[in-house]
């Protein structure tokens, strides 16, 4: 926890420095003409406070006034969390290529069958019903088209039927 607290504080310091650098594109000082701060002032000075506060958190961690839990992650379950994050990233990356109607069922298949160790009946029911529900809810009712990627041609007959 101590190490994680320091790393996160360092990360936030880096992030706020990056924000400050970005904010300087617009004037960050007092603009005498319009009366008031320039367009970059708000993000710049807020990031400056973030930088100072993160620095204070870092300094505090060295002074040993706060007791930290010995562990940050639960070693037993960390593997599951990392696995889920990796699969989520792969799913999102796949959406524009193979389309939401392939990527999301693949995600469900993995999550329920491999990760959740459920039976085929439950897995298949959810994997088939979810995209059907999504199609009717978003595309037919709300007219919001989900990304289809290379599966777009297969949807043309469906569009013709429902729109």
């Amino acid at each position: 926890m101590l190490l994680a607290d320091r790393l996160i504080a360092l990360g936030l310091m880096a992030l706020s420095a990056y924000f400050m650098w970005h904010a300087t594109v617009l004037p960050i000082g007092w603009n005498g003409m319009t009366g008031g701060p320039g367009g970059g002032a708000f993000p710049f000075w807020l990031s400056a406070i973030m930088f100072v506060v993160a620095g204070a958190i870092l300094v505090r961690s060295y002074r040993g006034q706060i007791e930290y839990d010995p562990t940050f992650f639960d070693p037993e379950t960390l593997r599951s969390v990392v696995l889920v994050v990796v699969v989520l990233v792969i799913t999102v990356a796949l959406i524009p290529i193979v389309g939401a109607y392939i990527a999301l069922p693949l995600f469900l298949l993995w999550y329920l069958k491999v990760f959740g160790k459920h039976g085929w009946t439950l897995t298949l029911i959810l994997t088939v019903c979810t995209p059907v529900f999504l199609f009717f809810f978003f595309e037919v009712t709300l007219k919001i088209l989900l990304p289809k990627g290379m599966t777009e041609p297969f949807f043309i007959p469906l569009y013709a039927r429902f729109f």
Partner: peptide
């Protein structure tokens, strides 16, 4: 099972 709920929330 919790995994069923989680998968639906993710989607």
């Amino acid at each position: 099972p919790f995994t069923v709920l989680c998968s639906m929330v993710f989607v």
